[in-house]
Design a protein around this nucleic acid. Sequence first.
DNA 1: TTATATGCAAAAGCTTTGCATGGGT
DNA 2: ACCCATGCAAAGCTTTTGCATATAA
Lengths: 146, 146
Amino acid sequence: MDHAIADRWLTQVDEALSGPGRRAGAARTAVVELLAREGQCLLSAHEILRRLPNASASSVYRLLDELLELGLVHRFHGDDGVARYEIADPDGHHHHLIDDVTGSPIPFADHGLELAIEAVAARLGVRLTGHEVVIRGKRRSNGTES
Amino acid sequence: MDHAIADRWLTQVDEALSGPGRRAGAARTAVVELLAREGQCLLSAHEILRRLPNASASSVYRLLDELLELGLVHRFHGDDGVARYEIADPDGHHHHLIDDVTGSPIPFADHGLELAIEAVAARLGVRLTGHEVVIRGKRRSNGTES
DNA sequence: TTATATGCAAAAGCTTTGCATGGGT
DNA sequence: ACCCATGCAAAGCTTTTGCATATAA
């Protein structure tokens, strides 16, 4: 995990969730801290609930919705139809490679890909507000495996 | 819709689904024909069921699963978590722009984007088996709107 | 004290499965 | 006649919602 990103994100969340008429409860604190620690790549509500046995499903879903609304997390729906979340941070921007063998997502970033997406948007006459890329494949052996 | 793609796809489906121990029932015929006609871009099971009041949900889901297994359709999970399908055809390859205003998907293809994705895969040492791109944005007025 | 965050339980919605029946071949 | 495809109904799962309670401010 990236401490700089985690800390900045926690600050943003604190700001967004400390207005008048807002309170910090146990569930909220626990979920936010978990996301900062482990939410930099695709965490589902069930995975969160498993790690936080004291939090209720309703609180977790409600909070995730709230963070989504505030733009503090991104949400994706995987091949299994389950929603997965990760913290939103410009410096943490990345896409996902799904390993054909293990099925697990591997984050990656690529400048050329970003440029290509911007070029597409320009060609289509679209002001870009978001984009996601998923690539699937099998990693070629690179000789470092055991 | 593209007749050439629809016809070729129908042929492929017929071949794949006519082996020994397979039969064509009413539901299968109706769903396959509907997909060929209107399934070139993101159709959900519910939309199919609405258009085919005589087909049962179980038949529709079972058939879509079967086509998915055979690689004859692609499946996506949209922001609402609902599975949407479209026919798989190399010549019909495209990605999706989600209009921020209407929420509806607009298909597009872009050679530069494909090249960028291949470059990423090469850099990551991955043999590509699939990829999806979704971009979101607001279409700029081009002066042709009413 | 007061209103918000929480948890429980029930409900909702999409999708899957079991099983008896109908219909292709 | 065989047995696959279908439809119905029930179940499964994730996610949402209603409501009473606990709790932060």
